[in-house]
Each structure stands twice: as C-alpha cells, then as structure tokens.
C-alpha cells in the first residue's frame, strides 16, 4: 500500500523554512557551505542554495558527496552500489558545513558522510538538514533541521521523488 506524505507544495514550504532556519541559527549565511549526499541530498542542497540566495543574496559554496566508499556494510553482501561523483570544489576546513540528505533513518549514512568529510578537511561545524526523519536510529545522531518527522515501522519504505530525477515532487510511504 502506498500513501502520499508530502506533496510538491509541502516540499517547497519545507525548503523555504529550513533555508530561513539555517540563516537564523548561523546569524546570516557568511562562512557557510552546503554539501548534499548523493543523490537526493544533492538536489535538495541545490534548492536550499537557491533559496538562501533569495533571502541573503549570498551564493554559498556547494558540493556533492558519495558515501559508498565509507559504508560499514561492505561485508554484508549487499549489491554493489554505483559510485557517484564526490565533488567538493572548495576547502571545507574552518567552514560551517551544512550536510543535506533526503531521509534520516539509521544514521549510518550520516556517520559515513562525516568520516568522508573528515578525510577532506576539518570543518569548524557540521550541521545536518534532512527532508524526512523516519526514526529507528542505530547511532547517536540527530538532525539540526528536519523537514518532517514521520513515525514509521521498520519494514515500511519511504520514497522521496524529486523533479530533478524526472518525477513529480512528493514523498511516499510504502507499507508491505
């Protein structure tokens, strides 16, 4: 069974709110940078970047991060993920870095992402923004900016559809 949790308008409002929250909490956009986790996070990071430009008229440095090489389940015979591009064309050291992902679940992707970032430099802060927090954390990780908290059962599946992937903007929950 599939149910729609967020529609296009909802996602638009969330991006707008999180952009404002980021600017508010960091007292402006000076010294910030955005890094999206492949793939959903990259699209959301681009949207946030555009929104922050509207609010503060500052173009933030922007990067994409692939975490496949830092995963902790390599020995669990999962199918081989396709390596996507890691492209962070600026020095992250000393910056406030906003890490962006579509869904926060076990927290393991974020752990991998932070390890990957630490290999590239030493950001002064890392803050986490997610579109959906579905619970079931396995590590002590929480998001600083949450689009929507959605209580789920572990067997359920959250699907984030985005225009950049050729789909209609929405978030779906599939119950087996």
């Amino acid at each position: 069974m599939t149910k729609e949790l967020l529609n296009k308008k909802d996602i638009e409002r969330i991006i707008s709110r999180i952009a404002h929250e980021i600017v508010e909490r960091n007292k402006g956009a000076e010294g910030l940078c955005l890094v999206g986790i492949q793939r959903g996070g990259v699209h959301l990071a681009k949207r946030l970047s555009a929104k922050i430009w509207e609010i503060e008229a500052i173009k933030l440095p922007f990067g994409s991060l692939d975490i496949s090489l830092y995963r902790d389940d390599i020995n669990m015979n999962k199918p081989q993920p396709v390596l996507r591009k890691t492209d962070i064309p600026f020095d992250i050291s000393g910056r406030r870095l906003i890490l962006i992902d579509d869904v926060l679940f076990t927290g393991r992707s974020i752990r991998s992402a932070m390890d990957a970032l630490m290999d590239m430099g030493r950001p002064s802060h890392i803050q986490l923004a997610v579109l959906v927090d579905r619970g079931h954390r396995e590590l002590p990780i929480r998001a600083d900016y949450v689009g929507k908290n959605i209580p789920t059962a572990k067997a359920e599946n959250i699907e984030v559809c985005l225009e950049e992937e050729g789909l209609e903007d929405r978030v779906l929950i599939q119950t087996p």
Binding site: L69, Y70, V82, R84, K85, T86, A116, D119, M120, G121
Partner: peptide, 18 residues
C-alpha cells in the same frame, strides 16, 4: 568507477576505508 577513484587520488588524503 575508476574515474571516481581517480578523484580520490587527487585529494590530500588519498585513501578511503572501502
């Protein structure tokens, strides 16, 4: 995949825990 690894080799820390 090798193109992605070539990017890794250009970093300061040329090593991943894969």
């Amino acid at each position: 995949t090798a193109f992605s690894f070539k990017d890794v080799l250009k970093r300061d820390i040329k090593k991943v825990p894969a």
